[in-house]
Amino acid sequence: MLRYLGRQLLSMVILLLLSSVLIYGSLYLAPGSADAVLFGNHTVTPAVRHAVEAQYHLNQPFYVQYWDWLSGALQGNLGTSIAFRTPVSQRVAAAAPVTIYLVIYASILITIAGVGLGVASALGGRRLDATIMAVTNVGTSVPTFVAAILLLEFFSLKLGWFPSLGAGSGFFSRIQHLTLPAVALALWAAAYLTRVTRTSMRDELRGEHVATARARGLRNSLVIRRHVFRNALLPIVTVSGLQVAGLIAGTIIVEQAFGLNGLGQLLLTSVEQKDYATVQAVALILVGAFVVVNTLVDIAYTFLDPRIRLGLREA
């Protein structure tokens, strides 16, 4: 088990390192990157150019610059935004809360709606099942940005139930502001999780151990809770974890649609302004979060299923 954990963590670290090389390297190669932003159309004397290059370490070889950047990033120093001349970490810290709230809010919605509807669909009557399946069909065929626009139009502009722009301040105002974005973000994943939960529950319901438990006269609720749901949990946890990892890219779209100043919006504006230090930092954070969540899901999977745990020990 420990060896498995070690291997999993090692591959995560390798993946993170390679992603960081890719992120840093690709923008390092960008045509006319820092110079153009720094000097614009001004002609500068070689001495000034040299001094500025030294200030931003542009005169060092690639691996030195990369190492400076990475070791800085690990200590929370994400470099200096050349366009704004402010520390990138400041801008990231200002943008991160909105994105974090959004992802947590959407994850809660996905789990509650996905598992709830999936269980209801598996246990309920034929009509309920058909209704829920029809809803999930719609849910999985509406792309996130379309869902965002539709929710904005109907619930914010037509009905006026929710504010259309901004993230709000204070806990309750924030919840009100982030409800539509979180629903847009959660819709696809919740519909998918509903289907996985339903299939998994149905597979377990057909199991012989359930028939045995029923034959022994156990209460139905106990059978469902202890013998069906608990066994059905494995694919549910895996899928919901992977969906949460997928949300990280989705936030970029939702933040743009609802005008939220989160990490995704910061990434997009930085791309537009060719503010490479900020692009690198935000991309590293988003990819890092994605990789870490995926690894955690892999580890959780083995913890949940003793068969996998034992099988690995023998191997």
Partner: peptide, 18 residues
């Protein structure tokens, strides 16, 4: 596996930045 671990949308944004 390595490439698979990199979200497509983010990769596209990086390429556009370039």
């Amino acid at each position: 596996d390595l490439i698979f671990a990199f979200p497509g949308l983010l990769l596209a944004i990086l390429v556009v930045a370039l």
